[in-house]
């Protein structure tokens, strides 16, 4: 508890949960690339992770991720409130020199990610929005598997849905653009020489991740992926 009442302790747990969430996103992105391989790939992948063999793993991952997300949000909100209290005003003419849009909007981009996350789960996991586009609305594919490919393609053919996902990826990019390096700094990784390198690497990684996610809706919109 002494660890968590310390300002660095709070940040360290924040950083650790952030890194775990980011690693999940990397794994998620790797899974998503199967969409680019066509219905055979993504449907097989989806059937695989939902199979009895992987079910315990899937549930374990869900529990860990949910715990991380809960801690990350709780600590992020606490830090945001404490930091706002410590700095009610920074004066009338404030010029920022190193802090960018990304680092200054972490709390707000975090909240937007949460909103997106809820929408995304309602869409592809719980099938309670866009029901006419959910897998259960379509017959199984040629191999008798749930036709996730059709659900994804038809969803992103709607500019409104594709646009929402693209906007969300821009926000994820903004959050992790600062977040990836920030967590390494908080965990005490950088040395004198490696600090600028790690900072740039974090920004590149965040951009690549978001671009990777954006690829699927863009591929559908441009007709590269088609039914």
């Amino acid at each position: 508890m002494a660890f968590l009442s310390n300002p660095i302790g709070k940040k360290m747990l924040m950083a650790l949960t952030g890194v775990i969430l980011f690693l999940f996103l990397v794994a998620h992105l790797l899974g998503n690339t199967t969409v680019l391989g066509g219905p055979g790939w993504i449907n097989a992948y989806a059937e695989h992770i939902h199979s009895a063999m992987f079910a315990p793993l899937l549930w374990a991952a869900r529990v860990v991720l949910l715990a991380c997300l809960g801690l990350h949000i709780a600590l992020g909100t606490l830090l945001f409130l404490e930091n706002t209290k410590a700095a009610p005003t920074k004066g009338t003419f404030v010029t920022y020199k190193e802090a960018g849009l990304s680092s200054r909007t972490m709390f707000y981009t975090g909240l937007l990610i949460l909103a997106y996350l809820i929408y995304h789960l309602l869409h592809f996991t719980l099938h309670s929005v866009h029901t006419s586009l959910s897998v259960s609305a379509f017959p199984p594919d040629a191999e008798g598997r749930p036709d996730l490919f059709r659900s994804i393609a038809l969803s992103f053919q709607r500019p409104g849905i594709a646009g929402t996902y693209l906007l969300a990826m821009a926000i994820v990019c903004l959050h992790t653009f600062h977040g990836v390096f920030s967590s390494l700094q908080t965990l005490g990784l950088p040395g004198k020489a490696s600090l600028p390198v790690l900072k740039r690497a974090g920004q590149v990684l965040a951009t690549l991740l978001a671009a990777g996610f954006a690829l699927v809706p863009v591929a559908v919109l441009t007709g590269w992926i088609n039914l």
Binding site: S5, N6, P7, K11, E82, A86, E98, S182
Partner: peptide, 23 residues
């Protein structure tokens, strides 16, 4: 441990790695 704890008690915020300080 003690300096960072007192830093918080005295009403200073936590570090978000903005790096404005260094500038």
């Amino acid at each position: 441990l003690s300096m960072t704890e007192v830093m918080q008690e005295e009403g200073f915020g936590a570090c978000s790695n903005h790096f404005e300080c260094q500038a």
